[in-house]
Amino acid sequence: MSKGTPTIDMTPMVDLAFLLVTFFMLTATAIPDEPVTVDTPSSISEIKIPENNILTITIGKDSRVFFNVDGQPTRAALLGKMGEMYGVQFTPEETHTFAIMSSIGVPMGGLKQFLDLKPEERKAMQPQLPGVPVDSAHNELADWVLQARLLNRQLRIAIKGDRDAEYPVVKKVVNTMIDRKVNRFNLITGMEKGGS
C-alpha cells in the first residue's frame, strides 16, 4: 500500500447499503401501472386500504371509468366468465395477457383486439382508451363487478376517483353498485395536506 493513500474501510457502509436494499426489495410493491393518473382527494379518514381482495374502480378526470381486480387466477377466470356472457372466445395467450395486465378500460367489444396488441402498443393506446361503459342502457361495469364478486366473495370495492371527476359519473358508478346490492364501499383518498 503506497504511503499516504487515504483508504476508507467501506465495509460497514456497504453492509448498511445492502441491508437497506434488502429491506426495500422485500417490502416493495411496485406502483401499479395506472392507465390514467388520478389525483385523489384528501380526507381525514385514517383507515388503510387492505392489501388483497380489492376491486378498484378508477374514475379519471376525463370521466373515463376503469375497472381492476387483483389476483391473477381471479382475473383469468373473470375473463372467461365475461367472454361467456358477451359471446367472445379468448385464447389462452389473451387470458394470460389479461391476467397480468392492469386496469381494464375497454368495452367488451374491443377487448379481444386490445389483448392481441403488443405491450408497447397497448401502452401507447392508454390515453385514448374509452373506459368501461357505465351508461344505464349499456352497463358493462355492472357485469364486471357482478362476475368478479361471484368469483371472489371477499372482494372489497374501492372507488378511486380523481378530485376533479364530474359528480354525475361518480353517481352513475355508485348507482351501478347499489343496483347490484353493493352498499358498502371504500373511497380511496389521500392524506390531508395541511389546512383545508
Partner: peptide, 20 residues
C-alpha cells in the same frame, strides 16, 4: 427501491349507501 416504494398506503373512507 426507495423511489418506487409507495410508503404511504392510500387511505380509504368507508361509506355505506342505503339499500334500494
Amino acid at each position: 427501491f426507495v423511489m418506487t416504494t409507495t410508503l404511504n398506503k392510500p387511505q380509504t373512507m368507508e361509506i355505506t349507501m342505503p339499500e334500494k
